[in-house]
Design a protein around this nucleic acid. Structure first.
Length: 429
RNA sequence: AGGGGUAUAGCUCAACGGUAGAGCGCUGGCUUGUCACGCCAGUGGUUGCCGGUUCGAAUCCGGUUGCCCCUGCCA
């Protein structure tokens, strides 16, 4: 079976009139006009019109269904079509695979199926150009992040997702059988990336993490992708600068490199205004106080509070200097007020995109913080060991990639920007 | 875990107590410039499931399941 193509559709244009080509892809539409048939054929690069004239040619589309895979051999011609500058006149159509009818969703997107039906047929959903655009954009976002961090001397690393101890903190981990032992799925690379600053100074990792929380919201998944960095000799304000660069670069890079995707999604990506506003937790609670929301120092900001803040600060902004009691054991306190921490969240309106800060590097302090938070230092022995081997002062953050995608594409539900999302109900496909 | 909404043809939806419909798709016919082709004819249903009220239930009520949204949970 020969299925070699000479060209991607995107490589063809009207200046190639008279050229013989072989293209292949998926039948998007079939329009039969008696002795003339038009097909629209799509591959990953674009869509072309195929014209069949004459009885021998027309016979070849007998039984052909939409979304079937075909190989087309033909000649480039100028086209009278409104939507195509050229067309491929063919008398040889090879049907490589017939698609069933009916399909579970309309793959062209003329009728938008609900998210559940689309996720059940996700691979087919990618034939919808709007959906495809999201994941093409996602590729470019990842490329941009890697470029920015690499330029800033961060090394990409891979840490284990299968871990032996659930001792990282209080959140719910998925547990699984690991031969005769108990294992867990990592919910963050936090401890590993801190340890790596000893040898590599600046590291980043882009990976999936797992949280066993039965959250039913448009911004939570049980499996999500996080971009994490950790850097020796950086303070929390330094890594905020890094985060700001990463985010701004993503917007600039995709604004420039993804015009077609923006058109498909009907969005215009614009570089956000910099620098991002940095608002302290204290100032945020005062602002909320003026809106009639009374908060004690140490109260966490609930969704309703963040929504209120988001109204006042609709774009990107940092919330900094959180009370120590709201932060995990490894967060470093402030010099001038040990009840506050060198920490921050990156917000987009009400939505938390990232959380980070300076970490403790003094083993004695770290140990006492563990105890303070009711954790058992014995369970952190492997981690604590590294702090005796010359732990540099260091800071870092974790950025929710799926949430960033949701902001970039202006799509509320993270399920839309994740290929095969996992939530408490959905484990398939 | 709590609250709100929703479930009707393959898909998207209407009908809201009185014979279950439309558009798209699909099948057949006609059609040489379509591009959401057009015209004619056809195809398509246990109205999610179980029970109740009623002369009569897609419609009202109770339960159940799936889904959507909000809250909670969420170093």
């Amino acid at each position: 079976m020969d299925f070699k193509r000479t060209h991607y559709i995107g490589q063809l244009d009207s200046s190639m009139e008279g050229k013989n080509v072989v293209v292949g892809g998926w039948v998007e539409d079939i329009r039969e006009l008696g002795k003339l048939t038009f097909l629209t054929l799509r591959d990953v690069t674009g869509v072309a019109q195929i014209v069949l004239v004459g009885e021998d040619s027309l016979k070849q589309t007998k039984g052909l269904t939409r979304q079937s895979v075909i190989k087309v051999t033909g000649t480039i011609k100028k086209s009278k079509a409104r939507d195509f500058a050229y067309e491929i006149k063919s008398n040889k159509i090879d049907i490589l695979t017939i698609a069933i009818h009916p399909l579970p969703i309309d793959p062209i997107g003329r009728l938008e199926s609900n998210i559940d039906n689309r996720l059940n047929a996700r691979a087919l959903d990618l034939r919808n150009q709007k959906t495809a655009a999201i994941f093409k954009l996602r590729h470019h976002v990842l490329a941009s992040i890697r470029k920015t961090l690499t330029e800033k001397s961060f090394l990409e690393v891979n840490t284990p997702k299968l871990i032996g101890s659930a001792s990282e903190g209080g959140a719910n981990l998925f547990s699984l059988k690991y031969f005769e032992k108990q294992a867990y799925l990592a919910q963050s690379p936090q401890l590993y990336k801190e340890q790596l600053t000893i040898g590599l100074e600046r590291v980043f990792e882009i990976a999936s993490y797992y949280r066993a929380e039965k959250s039913h919201t448009v911004r939570h998944l049980t499996e999500f992708t996080s971009v994490d960095i950790e850097a020796a000799f950086m303070d929390y304000s330094d890594v905020m600068d890094v985060l700001e660069s990463v985010v701004v670069d993503v917007f600039e890079y995709t604004a420039k490199n993804c015009p077609a995707e923006q058109k498909s999604l009907d969005i215009e990506i614009k570089k956000p205004f910099i620098p991002f506003e940095r608002i302290t937790y204290k100032k945020a609670t005062e602002e909320l106080g003026r809106d009639g929301i009374k908060l004690e120092v140490g109260d966490d900001l609930q969704d309703a509070h963040l929504r209120k803040l988001g109204e006042r600060h609709p774009g990107f902004y940092f919330l900094t200097d959180w009370p120590m009691k709201l932060k995990p054991f490894y967060i470093h306190e402030k010099d001038d007020d040990p009840t506050l921490s060198r920490s921050f969240d990156l917000q987009y309106g009400y939505l938390e995109l990232s959380s980070g800060g300076m970490r403790l590097h003094d083993p004695a302090k770290l140990k006492s913080r563990l105890i303070e938070q009711g954790l058992n230092p014995v369970q952190f022995e492997d981690h604590l060991k590294a702090f005796d081997w010359g732990m540099p002062p260091h800071s870092g953050w974790g950025l929710g990639l799926d949430r960033l995608m949701s902001v970039l594409t202006n799509i509320d539900n993270v399920r839309e920007v994740v290929l095969y999302p996992r939530d408490p109900e959905r484990l398939f496909p």
